[in-house]
């Protein structure tokens, strides 16, 4: 569990260091990767709570989205923990797919609940930038999982 915490902490730190450094228009969401990585090792309720905490963390820096991020991450954390059997399958492509879906769902909830965009801008955000960001997040998550796998597998051994 401690190793998972370390890995999640690394991912959270990457979210606040690497992401601003890259400053891509479709950016990597390391918080979603950290959420899925931690939530699959918890009960669904704890996953929801973990997501809520991460959402508060993210929302505190963006007052306009305060609450929406917490709601989105709570639901994603709960869902990931509930579907943890799938995540336990040692398939990077499947993990990447779930990362993509998780990020897109999060953006959907965040944008709709937080009233961040309207009309064409919302459609553009949901169907262009969010999928792109989700894809980049999935790729980055798969790479991070591949790199951090030895650290994570030591627990099971």
């Amino acid at each position: 569990m401690a190793r998972t915490v370390i890995v999640c902490a690394i991912l959270i730190v990457l979210h606040y260091t690497l992401r601003p450094l890259l400053a891509w228009r479709a950016s990597v969401d390391f918080l979603i990767v950290a959420l899925l990585l931690g939530a699959v090792r918890m009960r669904p309720g704890m996953g929801a709570l973990y997501g809520f905490a991460l959402g508060l963390l993210a929302g505190s820096l963006d007052v306009g989205g305060f609450g929406a991020a917490a709601l989105g991450m709570s639901l994603i954390g709960f869902g990931a923990s509930w579907l943890k059997a799938v995540f336990f399958a040692d398939n990077l492509a499947l993990n990447g797919f779930f990362l993509f879906i998780a990020k897109w769902l999060f953006d959907l909830i965040f944008l709709l609940v937080g009233h961040r965009a309207h009309g064409a801008e919302l459609a553009m955000q949901l169907f262009v930038w969010s999928p792109l960001s989700a894809a980049v997040t999935a790729v980055a998550g798969v790479i991070a999982l591949s790199i951090l796998r030895p650290l994570m597998e030591m627990r099971t051994a």
Binding site: R43, G45, A48, G51, S60, V63, G64, F78
Partner: peptide, 28 residues
């Protein structure tokens, strides 16, 4: 318990969403 925690998180999140900016700002 899981569902309760989820419901609690959702309710709290929704409360924070519906709060006005000046009420959310002190928490943030």
């Amino acid at each position: 318990v899981d569902v309760g925690l989820l419901a609690g998180c959702v309710v709290l999140s929704l409360i924070m969403v519906v709060l006005k900016d000046e009420d959310r700002e002190p928490i943030a």
